[in-house]
Design a protein around this nucleic acid. Structure first.
Length: 461
DNA sequence: TCTGGGGTCCTAGGACCC
DNA sequence: TCTGGGGTCCTAGGACCC
């Protein structure tokens, strides 16, 4: 019985491509291989590229190190225990970027439509290239040529998979590793997928695997043989339908050449937990400046500032606030980030802090306010969210309620503005006994709520 | 010997607007 | 005076990927 027919979908099923024209290229043990190429004495020996700090983890282990049980994401300490003779190296991203560039250029010769996923992985849509023989044998020959030229130009080995979809191509390259070449013919997708463990599907991690196990599903076949409704019940609408479709090999996701970045962040795990507030504040300040520098380098600005902390017990918290307009002013980001950190109880010590900016906008958009700001001789020439809003009459209210401002409410007491919009403002109140405080929203003009000081008097924090 | 850093997407609840 | 539904924005957390 055909399980697809027994559980009709409200949305049409994706139609697979009729030929195996999607290619997935994945460099083998990439970081470690680059190190072995650059340092011949390491060839044939176990190499581990990892964070070297007390709390570092393994980024890549060479196949020699994997024989000793070293795996990605394992703590460096555990890797040292398993393979004490390995060379432990800190990552050298400049070298990896250079090698990656060479490989990506070779891929780009095959087709104008390539989608890099990371330094060591990319999809290629051969059907967008010209004059290729797109029969299975033709694709196999193209892949073999690619593997040869990658090795000639870089010394690296690459595993290549080809299939009628991203999913099939990726799993095919994975199955062949290392130095693999596997073409899955159109029509053979389900037969290839069904025997595999469900965790091989992209999007099935430990948590999803546990949910699936709870309903007796460990293989892709078992997931495919569920009704779509049962998959949705177990995993939720989006993930349930998505994985159920993938389990059948239904995947018509197109390749996307370039994606706009949505956030920029910096974070650091300390060798020892830090509870010292002034020290944490100065770390957050320095991180804020680094984030802004990276924003500026791509001519972007952002509206939402986030602070992330990880407690001694690995509990992870985030606090964020959204400005009325994007900013790339380090002073604004620093001030907000420090205030967000001040909300968190750090007395138990932090193992990690981070600062991020999201809600990104083109720098040029912010520039629209340039004339207005320049027209005001009192204003700082740097465009800021506060300054640009102040240039419009409607901005007056927003400036009064700019996030981070200290306010006092007749009933709830002292707090600070978390966010504002047209006609409303949210305030976080500092209630020392119930951290991190509670947030309430008010109408702009609520007589019970007022700023603690005229604008310009920086809050004492 | 505890568990990186840089991201993306999804969910859920509160609050707003219409 | 009470009730309401859809859409959107915001915050927080979780899962996942490389």
């Amino acid at each position: 019985m055909d399980p697809v027919r027994t559980s009709p979908s409200p949305v049409p099923l994706p139609r697979p491509r009729s030929r195996a024209t999607i290619l997935h290229a994945d460099l083998d043990a990439f970081y470690a291989s680059v190190e072995q190429i650059d340092k011949p004495s390491l060839r044939g020996k176990p190499v581990v590229v990892s964070g070297l700090g007390l709390r570092g983890v393994v980024a890549t282990a060479s196949y020699e190190a994997r024989e000793h049980g070293v795996r990605s994401a394992m703590s460096t300490m555990e890797a040292r225990g398993r393979c004490p003779n390995a060379a432990f190296l800190a990552p050298r991203f400049e070298a990896y970027r250079a090698a990656s560039l060479v490989v990506m250029e070779l891929l780009a010769e095959l087709s104008p439509l390539i989608e890099p996923l990371s330094l060591d992985e990319a999809y290629v849509d051969l059907a967008a290239g010209s004059h290729h023989d797109l029969s299975d044998d033709g694709v196999r020959a193209l892949a073999a040529d690619l593997k040869r030229s990658v090795h000639q130009r870089t010394g690296l080995t690459v595993s290549v998979g080809a299939g009628s979809s991203k999913l099939v191509a990726k799993i095919a390259s994975d199955l062949g590793k290392p130095d693999g070449l596997m073409v899955i013919s159109a029509g053979d997708e389900a037969a290839m997928l069904r025997p595999l463990a469900a965790v091989r599907l992209p999007g099935v991690g430990p948590a999803t695997a546990a949910k699936l196990r709870a309903i007796g599903v460990t293989t892709i076949a078992q997931l495919a043989d569920l009704s779509e409704a049962d998959a949705v019940t177990a995993l939720g609408k989006s993930q349930g339908r998505g994985l159920w479709l993938l389990a059948h090999g239904f995947d018509d996701r197109p390749l996307s050449l370039e994606r706009e970045s949505k956030s920029v962040s910096v974070e650091d795990t300390f060798d020892r937990d830090i509870a010292d507030v002034p020290r944490l504040m100065s770390i957050v300040e320095e991180m804020s400046r680094r984030v802004v520098e990276r924003l500026a380098a791509t001519r972007l600005s952002g509206r939402t500032i986030s602070v992330k902390v990880r407690l001694h017990d690995f509990t992870t918290l985030t606090r964020s606030a959204t400005l009325p307009a994007p900013t790339d002013d380090p002073r604004v980001v620093v001030r907000l980030a420090r205030q967000l950190l001040a909300e968190v109880d750090v007395s138990g010590g932090l193992r990690l802090v981070g600062v991020g900016v999201s809600g990104l906008a083109d720098w040029t958009q912010d520039d629209l306010f340039g004339e207005l700001i320049a027209a005001d001789p009192d204003d700082d020439p740097t465009p800021t969210a506060e300054a640009s809003l102040d240039a419009t009459p409607a901005g007056q209210a927003a400036r009064t309620w700019v996030p981070g401002r200290d306010v006092v409410h007749a009933t709830f007491g002292h707090g600070w503005v978390q966010g504002s919009g047209a006609g409303w403002v949210t305030v976080r109140f500092e209630t020392r006994d119930t951290p991190p405080g509670r947030v309430k929203s008010f109408r702009v003009g609520d007589p019970n709520l007022r700023p603690t000081a005229p604008y310009g008097a920086a809050p004492a924090r």
